[in-house]
Write a protein that binds this DNA or RNA. Structure first.
Length: 395
DNA sequence: AGTCCACAGGAAGGGCAGGCGA
DNA sequence: TCGCCTGCCCTTCCTGTGGACT
């Protein structure tokens, strides 16, 4: 069964080099940002608290990579110089990890060595424990909050206000905050008090252009693939596609990695442009199917209803009201408790935000206002989603 | 100019599970 | 065990609204 796989020589030398966790020896096209961040954080080496910094840039522009790079360097120097310096890194978007104020504080306290339960305590209590932990330390503590925009949009900016004021009550420690945001207009959501104290310094990460992406990919492929594994034009194609998607380097790497996997699975010697196309499809399909799989069952049912109506009526767009009435029928057929229209409306809007369906609010004048829902998914994906839902409800 | 449809979407709060300290 | 806390899903109640129709 596996002999052909074993006999086949893998095109990959080190697949990890194509993941976003990989830390390359040299970071390309980000010198300015690196130097900038380094000079902002440098005062911590002399025990002074550095300014709070905010990093902006869309996904895959190297923010997290550079934060990791600079803070690691900083930490090494601090250790050599025998300076007290602590760096906490939290990704606020990780589901079930740090997507609420409570969890964020719990996670921070945990990184400082406090033992905190994942739920059960008052937020105030967690805050106190975190504060106690800080109080017992010396030197500078840098708190890096990745994808901070997601958290602020969800729970508001009050926790940030508290964090920025925490220095006032600390004696021996100094806290400085390093926020990382994917959303360039993010500060608009924040209170002006928080805004001014938090964005003392700002660093912008512009998207990579196709040329820069190509160089980045080139460097990584040397590490990741054996020589001559790629046909001409593969790298250019990946960079061009990713440049189109807001200069997303992560996307470019994914394309290349998946293309490699597909070629390998097809037992082909070289990676060709067609594999990149296939990879593009596969990534999109996996993303959507995975998103749907993780939705709660009512949300799945709503999506199923939408697909069902569109298919049956042979329409391209439908309104919330149609979905809701059909949804109620479905519920009684399947003996599932039915939700209110308000909730279903909310679920539809969530599905829209996840990019599974398209929904825009339109006014039909005399005939009211509604959401116009359309689905832009390939047959293949629809089938997979339908299977997923049927599995859930008919077994 | 005014009406009115068919919802959108905000706010508040209920009920439940998971989990803590006492 | 009790009282309390949180997150999560959901309901109830509500106000807001673009534009076809009168």
């Amino acid at each position: 069964m596996f002999s052909s796989y074993l006999e086949q020589e893998s095109a990959f030398k080190n697949k990890d080099a194509l993941t976003s966790q990989w830390k390359p020896d040299e970071i390309l096209h980000r010198d300015q940002q690196i130097n900038n961040l380094a000079s902002i954080l440098a005062p911590s080496l002399k025990g002074n608290d550095p300014s709070n910094v905010f990093l902006y840039g869309s996904v895959g522009t190297g923010k997290s990579l550079i934060v990791r790079h600079v803070t690691e360097e900083l930490k090494t120097v601090a250790e050599n110089e025998d300076v007290d310096l602590n760096i906490l890194y939290i990704n606020c978007k990780m589901k079930k990890v740090a997507d609420t104020e409570y969890r964020l504080l719990a996670k921070l306290a945990e990184q400082l060595g406090e033992d905190v339960p994942s739920t059960g305590l008052a937020t105030e209590e967690i805050y106190n424990r975190f504060f106690e932990a800080l109080q017992g330390m010396e030197g500078v503590v840098i708190i890096a909050l990745d994808e901070i925009d997601a958290l602020v949009k969800k729970v508001g900016d009050e926790f940030l206000y508290n964090l920025t004021r925490i220095n006032d009550d600390l004696d021996t420690t100094k806290v400085s905050i390093l926020g990382i945001s994917n959303d360039l207009n993010f500060t608009e959501y924040m209170d002006s008090r928080v805004k001014s104290s938090l964005s003392e310094e700002e660093i912008i990460f512009p998207p990579y252009n196709a040329l820069e992406l190509r160089e980045i990919l080139k460097a990584r492929t040397d590490e990741a693939f054996i020589e001559g594994a790629l046909k001409d034009g593969v790298i250019s194609k990946c960079s061009a596609l990713a440049a189109h998607e807001h200069g997303d380097a992560r996307r470019a790497l994914d394309l290349l990695r998946v293309a490699g996997e597909l070629a390998e699975r097809g037992e082909e010697e070289k990676i060709e442009k067609k594999h990149v196309d296939m990879a593009q499809d596969k990534i999109e399909r996996d993303r959507v199917v995975e998103t749907v799989r993780n939705q709660p069952k009512q949300s799945k049912l709503v999506l199923y209803t939408i697909l069902d109506i569109l298919e049956e009526e042979d329409e391209t767009e439908i309104a919330t009201g149609d979905v809701y009435s059909r949804y109620k029928e479905m519920c009684s057929d399947l003996d599932v408790s039915e939700l209110t229209q308000r909730r279903v409306s909310g679920l539809i809007s969530e599905l829209d935000m996840l990019g599974v369906i398209n929904a825009k609010v339109i006014s039909k004048g005399r005939y009211g206002r509604t959401r116009q829902i359309s689905v832009d998914l390939s047959e293949d994906i629809r089938d997979q989603i339908e299977e997923l839902v049927e599995e859930k409800f008919y077994v």
